[in-house]
């Protein structure tokens, strides 16, 4: 069983790294790019045969309490079979 957690800055929080990447892309000629937000990606391996609902709740807790800081970041959890 595998899961993916995506963590990104809240849209209300300034993301200077994303802005810098956006500027770099613009100066490379990719004028069509209007915004870049940079985030983090976690690939998590779990034991097989876990109950899906319980695992989803646990992963949500992990994403909220450990992998992200809810003051500044949003997260999204994907569970893969």
């Amino acid at each position: 069983m595998k899961a993916r957690v995506y963590v990104s800055m809240k849209t209300t929080v300034l993301d200077p790294q994303g802005q810098t990447v956006c500027h770099a892309l613009n100066s490379l000629g990719h004028k069509e790019i209007t915004s870049v937000r940079q985030g983090k990606f976690f690939e998590i391996a779990l034991a097989d045969g876990l109950p899906k609902e319980k695992t989803a709740i646990a992963l949500d807790e992990i994403a909220r309490d450990v992998l992200s800081n809810p003051v500044i970041e949003d997260y999204r959890v994907e569970i893969l079979d």
Partner: peptide
């Protein structure tokens, strides 16, 4: 309260 993030000038 609050958070500390990357410096504005990186």
């Amino acid at each position: 309260p609050g958070a500390l993030v990357r410096n504005a000038g990186l």
